[in-house]
Nucleic acid binder design. Structure first.
Length: 587
RNA sequence: GGGGUCGUAGUUCAGUUGGCUAGAACGCCGGCCUGUCACGCCGGAGGCCGCGGGUUCGAGUCCCGUCGACCCCGCCA
């Protein structure tokens, strides 16, 4: 049925033809995008990655029957001559719209089943169907553009780091389980019964060893694996631009990454200004209730505890007396909310975990819910929150950080609802001075907030044992529009301090030795001070592409349920493979 | 592990208080048409109403369970 490609050689892509090509012969190879059969004349839109060209068949008894056979997504080769379209038939919507190819020969290189959804329309199709037929979805404009953008981001990244003297080095995929952190993906060893490789959660230890090895500057576009539940911005496997450099201070990393981000944003024609704003973790939590604040909207949280310490409102007074806080923020134009809208808001707040949310409308006689709070305190609170008479004040009380984080969630909820987050604005932020450690109530021990190789700030090291919660880390996150797109730190390069860290984390000497004795040993052979960062490629490309899910910028993503709907992974394996791997299924 | 939204032709959806012989648009198939470009016009085919159970004279619609997609919490150094 199908014709052979034979000697048909592409002369132009389907997006290339312009007025200057008029009169020249052309061979196009691509997919049938659409056919418009007018009876005596047939127009065929031929599509490839580069664009669409119109092919005309007319006054040609040999070609007409072939043209009539064509269906959507047939693969064809067309040979003909480029001709100018008459002025009234130019299609301004097509880059190639000034010209068309008058066909002399059409070869049907392959037929195609009718696709389950239209490739030629960008009409909505359920994600389930799109994922099942990913190869068809990838033909559509949206994913072609996203995947093309992703390629350009990767290439710009490689050019940038190459120019700065960084070496791209691959690190193992089959490696060793690292302590703490996410759940590992494990790969059973055939040669070593009962032993496992782990897929890397990040190349962390290897890149540090490369610094010990004198590589000086390393980067890698690295695949990372974490066996945790999925989200719109999280997949089981994801890609990082992994970077490490010797003799780095936090400033060195900021100054390295900011121009890179500039380069990447040039790929979508945007100029962003550097340097980026910087903010300590404590300030981010206090003012925005988040360690990755979205700075595109105001809605800044203010401290109100002192105003209620002596107020008539018993609930607030007691919370403050007990070491808790009262905090809140003003919603611009929130005074227009109706009573039922406010009830809904209070309901939603409760779902977020608020025990109570108090709203106050300025300039009105206090409603019953707030009457008890006392006018003087309220007036002061409104003033401090900067609430005008059009605004609305929202307040909550409770434990310090928890209250801030809840208000931070509510802040984002309202910002989205009120359309305060302009998708065309890109606001970068470095968050730094993270706590080195955080205490987990459930098992009563300290955990690294970043990872166990993160260096504490020199002036805080002495409190590592006496007051671990107060020790700040030389760690930094890069935040863009409320999304964490990168994170890194200056590392511990002193083996004694590293040993002290493990001890602080409750990892015994034995355990430390067993799990990464090789690394501790390496540290003893002249380790330069070093540090680095990892950037989330999927998240960055999604933001550049204006997509809200990273699945839209990954060629073959998995579902929220960790399934590859196209390939059908994961899947059972046969008996023989179980045996070879020395595994048996648990009954 | 928990909460929420959704599931009806190939696709996107509609389907009132339970009365359905389940509709629309696009796509698909056939016919007509020599300048269309989301071509147009005429005709046609196409449904386990996700799956299983229950209530009912009667279920796409109500109830229970289950599966799947998506969003959120937990989790993600």
């Amino acid at each position: 049925m199908a014709d052979q490609l034979g000697d048909l050689t592409r002369t132009h892509t389907c997006g290339a033809l312009r007025a200057e090509h008029v009169g020249t012969p052309a061979v196009l190879l691509g997919w049938v995008h659409r056919v418009r059969d007018l009876g005596g004349v047939t127009f065929i839109d031929v599509r490839d990655r580069d664009g669409i060209s119109q092919v005309v068949v007319r006054d040609n008894d040999e070609l007409m029957p072939i043209a009539k056979r064509l269906r959507s997504e047939y693969v064809i080769g067309v040979s003909g001559v480029v001709q100018r379209r008459s002025d009234d038939t130019v299609n301004a919507k097509l880059a190639t719209g000034e010209v068309e190819v008058l066909a002399r020969e059409i070869r049907v290189l392959n037929e195609a089943k009718t696709p389950p959804f239209q490739i030629s329309e960008d009409a909505p199709v359920s994600e389930e169907v799109r994922l099942r037929y990913r190869y068809l979805d990838l033909r559509r404009t949206r994913l072609q553009q996203n995947i093309g953008l992703r390629h350009r981001v990767a290439m710009a990244t490689r050019r940038y780091f190459d120019a700065k003297g960084f070496w791209e080095i691959e690190t193992p995929i089959l490696t060793k389980s690292t302590p703490e952190g996410a759940r590992d993906f494990l790969v059973p060893s055939r040669a070593h019964p009962g032993e496992f490789y782990a897929l890397p959660q990040s190349p962390q230890i290897f890149k540090q060893i490369l610094m010990i090895a004198g590589t000086d500057r390393y980067f890698q576009i690295a695949r990372c694996f974490r066996d945790e539940d999925q989200r719109a911005d999280r997949q089981l496997e994801f890609t990082q631009v992994d970077v490490e450099m010797s003799f780095a201070r936090p400033e060195s990393i900021y100054e390295l990454i900011e121009p890179l981000m500039q380069q990447l944003f040039k790929e979508i024609g945007r100029d962003i200004s550097i340097p980026f704003r910087r903010m300590a973790y404590a300030e981010a939590i206090a003012r925005y209730g988040s360690d990755k604040p979205d700075l595109r909207c105001g809605l800044e949280i203010v401290e109100l505890s002192d105003l209620f310490a002596d107020s008539e409102f018993r609930v607030f007074k007691q919370i403050v007396a007990g070491g808790g806080v009262v905090r809140g923020f003003a919603v611009p134009r929130g005074n227009s909310y109706t009573r039922s809208q406010l009830d809904v808001l209070v309901d939603q707040a409760k779902q977020m975990g608020f025990t109570g949310l108090i709203w106050v409308r300025p300039g009105e006689p206090p409603l019953s819910s707030v009457k008890a709070i006392g006018a003087p305190s309220l007036g002061a609170a409104l003033t401090r929150a900067g609430a005008s008479s059009d605004d609305l004040l929202l307040m909550a009380a409770g434990a310090g950080e928890a209250t801030s984080k809840l208000l931070g969630q509510l802040r984002l909820h309202i910002a989205k609802k009120e359309n305060l987050l302009d998708p065309e604005t890109f606001t970068f932020l470095w968050v730094n001075d993270f706590p080195l450690l955080e205490y987990h109530e459930d098992d009563g021990r300290w955990y690294s907030m970043h990872h166990p190789f993160t260096s504490p700030r020199e002036e805080d090291v002495e409190r590592l044992e006496s007051d671990p919660g107060s020790v700040r880390a030389k760690a930094y996150d890069l935040v863009l529009n409320g999304s964490e797109i990168g994170g890194g730190s200056i590392r511990i390069h002193d083996s004694a301090l590293q040993a002290r860290m493990f001890k602080r984390l409750g990892i015994s000497d034995e355990d430390a030795k067993a799990r990464f004795g090789f690394f501790l040993e390496a540290l003893e052979y002249g380790t330069p001070p070093h540090g680095g960062i990892a950037l989330g490629v999927d998240r960055i490309v999604a933001l550049l592409a204006g997509e809200s899910s990273i699945r839209e910028v990954i060629a073959f993503p998995k579902t929220a349920n960790a399934i590859d709907l196209m390939a059908g992974a994961p899947s059972p394996v046969d008996e023989k493979q179980w045996r070879e791997l020395h595994l048996r299924q648990q009954k």
